[in-house]
Structure formats: C-alpha cells, structure tokens
Nucleic acid binder design. Structure first.
Length: 493
RNA sequence: CGGGAUGUAGUUCAGUCCGGUUAGAAUGCCUGGUUUGGGACCAGGAGGUCGUUGGUUCGAAUCCAGCCAUCCCGACCA
C-alpha cells in the first residue's frame, strides 16, 4: 500500500526503477549517473562476488589491485582500445583546489595546479596492467600470469540506468598473459564458461554463449565471447564478456618473453569481466509486480522467519524462541535465515515487505501452528503457501530452497526458449521484433554493412554467433547472400 | 548530446497558469492506548533553506535566466 510498484505491462522501465528503489537495492545520488548501492544491494553483490571469486581461484587466478588512474600516454598506446573508449573517459587535469577570491567560502580549481600529463580515470585497465606486465615478464617461466581485480571503473555514459548503465560501476576484470595463442584462447573460453555456469547455476539465469561479430567486439580484441540473457520484455542483456586479445596489447606495450628456444616473442593476452549490471539482469529476468524474486543461492536472506505475536506473553515468548531455534539450526546448515520479531509491525506488512525484497522463502510461526506442530511456508517464486509439520523442518527448507532455485531457472529458460524464433524473411523479422519481442535466429551474410543496415532498420543487433552453432545452408535475411549458419539477433540493453 | 517532462515535509503529490497573511493533504515518522493469520485503528505531536544561484518586484514556491539532479523518447554505448 505504501509502496506502489508500477506494473510490468504498464511501464517496464518504471517497474524496473520502482523495484530497485523500493526493494532497497540502490538509490540515486547527488552525482550525475552514479548510484548508491544500499546494504541490501551490496550484500547481494557480495554474495555474487564471493561465488565468482571462488571460481576464479579454483581456475588458478589470484587477485591484485591496479591504480584508478591511467596516464593518458599509456591509455592511448593501444590505439583501437583507446579510440573505443575515448568518448566516455573522465579525465583528471588538476590536482588542487583553492579558495575563490571572488566568492568567499567557495573553492575553485587552482589553475597553477595543472597536471603535466592528464590522468584518465580507468574505463577498463588493460593499459595500466600491460604497462605493469612488461616489468613482470621476461621469460616463458614468468608465464602464465593469471590476475583478477575487483574494482570500480568509470564510463561517462550519456544516458544512465540503475545497475544497467551507470557512470561508475563495480566489476571484476581478469587480465591474463600467456606464452601461446592456444593457451590464451583456452583461457578465454574457460572464463566464458565460468560466467555461464555462474549465471545459470547461481543466478538461475539461462544464457546463450557465443562470439561477438566484429562490430560488437571489444575494442582492441581479436575475439569477444559473450553470454547473452533474455529479459522479460524480450530484450537481450549482455551479461559477461571474455576477450581474446591476441598480441595487440603486448605489441602496444612491448611485452615480450624469451621462449624455450631462446627466441623473443610477444605475449598472448585475455581479459574478461562481469559487473554490477548482473544485478539488473537478475531483476529483469525474475521479478514480478510484487517485487524482486531472488534465487536462493545468492539471496542476502534465503529464509525469513516471522513469528506471530500473541496477547499471551507466554505464547509469544515460545513462538519467538521456536523461531530463533529454527534460525540457528538453519544457520548451522549454512542457510542464511533471519527472524523478524519486530513487534511494531504487523505480519501482513512484513509479508509484503519481504516479498518486495524477494526473499525466497517465508516461514510463519503462529499460535495455531505452534499448537499443531506446524508452520506455514510461503515460497516467493510461485507464491504458494503450505502448512507443513515442524518435523525435519530444516531439511525440508533446504530442499525447498533447491527446488526454488531450479524452478526459477526452468521458468526463465522456458520463457526464453519460447521467445526464440527462427526467421527466414526480413518482413517477418521486422514484424516479430515489434509484435513478439525476443531473440531471432536468422541467416546473415557476415558483413558489417549488412549488420549495420539491419540495426538501422530494426534496432536489432547481432547479440552473438552461438557456440556449437548448427551449420546449415541459408540465405542472408537482408541481402539473400549465402550463409552457413544462423546468428542471434535481438534488441538489447 | 538533442527533444519532452519534473524538482514543494522521509515518500507521493496539491498549490505555480493569474505573485500578496502563518505553504497544505495523504502516507510515513514520534508519543500513548487498543490491536495483530495478508500492508491495523483512535488520540496527540514533530517535521519544509519550496533543487540551487542570481534577476525582476514594495513583496517570489509562483515571473525570468543560468546551473544541478531525476525520469521518458532519441542519438550514442565493448
């Protein structure tokens, strides 16, 4: 009642904003395009981060930290990369403020304190990292270098949206250096697989793995792998990328090593990243008009236990006790459970509040339940309520959480799959994008010109060329030229 | 960056067109009481640099200009 959420069908954008703000994930800030990630949102990010970090370490990576600032001369060294990001770089030009003599109490940039060389606020860290790697690498024995960093980056976007596109955002960026091309390519593929595994098994977000077309490729990369997810409005969201950088950065930063044959060679590189944008994906893939629906594996709270308070003090005490015992048992099993015994809020209010926050499972313990040895359980994903015996409750809850996790994935996958259509003529292609938004598999002649033209006509872009794509003869949807496989088209965030 | 809209109490908004006492409502908040199986009720109370800076005026939330922020559409975006 107090927190009205705009309906999904009414206005999808407003629905999204309402959810982010009212569920307590994030807030706007006084800085253009920058948001505050609130504790609830940050806990969610921490959970995602912890899972990913573990996976990175399991695959041999270590964390490090590189500077926020990149001297302009370093930044521009890899030309394509620099050019790709140039338009959205924040630049530090001065290092001091001073009192404004014309306006007492106000500060001004001290013109005397101009930097000799401007510092670019990193939009990504390849430049500063490869400049560093040059010092670290002399021999094949120094390779591979498998480093990741958790950091913030800044991209001065014209139009921002909470989590999906903000001027500053949090992410991780892996930067690896290898002795052979083969090894670097394997690394690139390994990491896109790590991302896909994370998206599907933790975020319950089905993704399509693929390769970017040349025009959608990361600036400075030889090849970009991507995972693409479908949102509930049928649009695609690029959810993670892994780049094979070839020797581009090694050449730009003169990073060479002596191989076993005592020959000087350029180092092979990869980089890969996912960001807080994933939280946007989570919302748009799963949430409904009542609020967020978070997958149990990363939800800040997996279970909320709400004791009903009774006039009978003794009874109330007992319900709270039972609640806390259950919480402790769940915690012991590694389940993130909380008790809300706040007397000042009524149960109905709490129900609505935790539904808004997307807590996967709600356990209600009231006098009636207590007397019968039952509790009421409500799952967020299906909104089903059931009364179950208190016997073996923790085990049942554990099972239910797994069930919810799986159900969320299945539901999202069914939705996605039913919104992927094979199309063979351009008229249908155009019509479908407007009438039934989703992904379209269509033939493409492989040229950037055709891709550009299709984008102009339909606003749809090639999201990726799926991996393990079935090969089939066909004709380009636009030009009719021969094509050997279908590629994935969609309108995208 | 272009077009449109908005900015008044924690929140949502009225008041602005047509300047004039002490700026209102709902909700939220605080206190007390009654309540409690799906967003409770009664009584009392606190809470506002009207986004910001400047201008016009005897007088500005109201008119004008700049700036800041947000939303929507577009352009742009690995």
């Amino acid at each position: 009642m107090s927190k009205e959420i705009t309906g999904r069908t009414e206005n999808y954008s407003e629905w999204y904003n309402d959810l982010v703000l009212k569920s307590g994930l994030a807030d706007y800030s006084a800085v253009r395009g920058c948001m505050v990630i609130k504790p609830y949102g940050f806990t969610l990010w921490e959970n995602m981060r912890d899972v990913l970090d573990k996976k990175f370490k399991e695959t041999g990576h270590v964390n490090a930290y590189f500077p926020l600032f990149v001297p302009k001369s370093l930044f521009e060294a890899e030309e394509k990369n620099a050019e790709g990001f140039a338009k959205e770089c924040a630049v530090v030009t001065h290092y001091r403020l001073k009192n404004n003599p014309d306006e007492p109490g106000k500060l001004m940039v001290d013109p005397e304190a101009k930097l000799e060389e401007e510092l670019v606020v990193r939009p990504t860290s390849e430049a500063i990292i490869w400049n560093t790697y040059k010092k670290w690498i002399q021999s094949y024995r120094d390779l591979p270098i498998l480093v990741n960093q958790w950091a913030n980056v800044v991209r001065w976007e014209m139009r921002t949206r909470l989590f999906l596109r903000t001027a500053e955002f949090l992410w991780q960026e892996g930067h690896t250096a290898h002795a052979t091309k083969q090894e670097a390519i394997e690394e690139t593929i390994q990491m896109i697989n790590v991302y896909a595994d994370f998206a599907e098994n933790y975020m319950a977000l089905p993704v399509i793995k693929g390769v970017k077309s040349e025009s959608e490729r990361f600036a400075g990369a030889e090849n970009t792998y991507t995972i693409e997810a479908m949102m509930q409005d049928g649009k695609a969201l690029q959810s993670g990328t892994s780049h094979f950088l070839g020797q581009n950065f090694a050449k730009a930063f003169d990073v060479t090593f002596k191989n076993k044959e005592n020959e000087e060679e350029y180092v092979w590189a990869t980089s890969w990243g996912v960001s807080t944008r994933l939280i946007g994906a989570l919302i748009m893939a799963h949430a409904d008009d009542d609020g967020l629906i978070l997958p149990p594996r990363i939800a800040p709270h997996q279970v909320v236990i709400i004791p009903f308070l009774s006039k009978n003090e003794e009874e109330t005490k007992k319900m709270i006790e039972t609640s806390i015992n259950l919480k402790n048992e769940l915690n012991k099993m590694g389940i993130r459970a909380m008790v809300d015994s706040d007397e000042t809020k009524r149960p109905g209010f709490k129900f609505a509040e935790y539904e808004l926050k997307g807590v996967p499972l709600r356990v209600v313990i009231g006098p009636r339940d207590l007397a019968n040895g039952n509790v009421e359980i409500a799952r967020r994903d299906t909104k089903e309520k059931s009364t179950i015996s208190i016997e073996n409750l923790p085990e049942k809850i554990e099972q239910l959480l797994e069930n919810i996790q799986q159900n969320m994935f299945d539901k999202a996958k069914t939705f996605r799959d039913s919104n992927i259509t094979k199309v063979d003529d351009f008229e249908t292609f155009q019509k479908l994008l407007d009438e039934k938004p989703g992904f379209i598999l269509a033939h493409w002649d492989g040229t950037a010109e055709t891709e550009e033209k299709i984008k102009e006509l339909t606003k749809a872009t090639i999201r990726c060329i799926p991996l393990d794509n079935p090969q089939e003869e066909g004709k380009c949807i636009l030009t009719g030229k021969p094509s050997k496989e279908r590629v994935l088209f969609a309108r995208a965030y």
